[in-house]
């Protein structure tokens, strides 16, 4: 299986560990990633606010690059998934597509509307499938309680495979990886990332409430499909702890890292050392579980 890989901005910058872990996991399950190296930012809502037409054109450009390769787009970020698939839906309208194609024509590009935008979580569960995924598990997550933190944008992207009010994808994935999912109501809550620089107090409190509830439900780690959620939940967790007046101390894993750990990859290769909240206790507990022979 080949996919046009759109890592987005953050997975190549402060969350490089996500890009690294995704490439390792993709290779292991036989997905060939053709990186869209020259694709621009999805706009993340900011460009959409500043100039909606420019945002639509920039995303149409990205989609056209994948179309030229004859591949669907793979994202690893909730926000990339939302804004690329929103653009894709808008571009289904022939009139809109024609208008945007007039802009793209200046670059010698054209988008015909024939590309799908998929997040890695969806690809793992639907295209690779539980059976093939499970066949790669060398270190089942066992009794380690892992909770999901979905992030808004993955759930609310047009065409999302999940019920936004009651998603099951990450919990299903944890089960496939031989683990025990923990559920709690704020697993679909907002991390606050998009107001982090404007209203940090609000963003930190929002993420704190989610972390606190997950911890209370017994989670020993969170798994998130979005690097922006990861930044707030991990890097700002000390502030979240202060906001709720208790130490939260909950490691946060990218979905790709969780899969990689269960595949038996060396934690150092998955970039776990880059996290601000130590993942060591979780990894140590995982290393105590029995390794399944290939």
């Amino acid at each position: 299986m080949r996919l046009a890989y759109f890592p987005g901005c953050v997975a190549l910058d402060s969350c490089r560990e996500l890009d690294i872990a995704t490439r390792l996991v993709a290779e292991e399950v036989g997905i060939e990633l053709v990186e869209l190296e020259d694709a621009g930012c999805c706009g993340a809502g900011n460009l959409q606010e500043y100039n909606p037409e420019a945002a639509l054109a920039l995303n149409a450009r990205t989609l056209s690059m994948a179309e030229d390769l004859g591949l669907d787009v793979l994202t690893v970020c909730g926000t990339c998934q939302l804004y690329l698939s929103r653009a894709n839906v808008a571009l289904r309208d022939p009139e809109t597509r024609e208008r945007v194609n007039r802009l793209l024509a200046r670059l010698g590009r054209r988008y015909g509307g024939g590309v799908r935008v998929k997040h890695f979580l969806q690809v793992l569960l639907e295209d690779v499938g539980p059976r093939r995924l499970a066949a790669h598990v060398r270190r089942p997550l066992g009794n380690l309680p892992v909770a999901a933190f979905y992030g808004c944008h993955l759930l609310r992207a047009p065409g999302a495979a999940e019920d936004a009010e009651d998603p099951r994808a990450i919990e299903r994935l944890v089960e496939v990886l031989g683990g025990t999912p923990v559920t709690y109501s704020r697993r679909t809550a907002c991390c606050g990332f998009h107001v982090l620089t404007v209203r940090q107090d609000v963003a930190v409190k929002m993420s704190a409430l989610g972390l606190q509830e997950a911890r209370g439900a017994g989670a020993q780690a969170l798994a998130t499909p979005c690097p922006l959620c990861h930044l707030v939940l991990d890097a700002y967790q000390h502030k979240a702890s202060r906001a709720v007046g208790e130490p939260l101390n909950l490691p946060v894993l990218h979905v790709s890292q969780l899969v990689g750990l269960s595949f038996g990859f060396d934690p150092a290769r998955l970039g776990l050392r880059r996290h601000l909240v130590s993942v060591k206790p979780f990894v140590r507990a995982l290393e105590d579980t029995e390794v399944v022979k290939a």
Binding site: E37, A54, A57
Partner: peptide, 18 residues
Amino acid sequence: LKSVPEIRALLDAAEEGA
């Protein structure tokens, strides 16, 4: 990105409303 001039041209064109 190598394609910055291309991206800038696209953003400018969209802003002109061309």
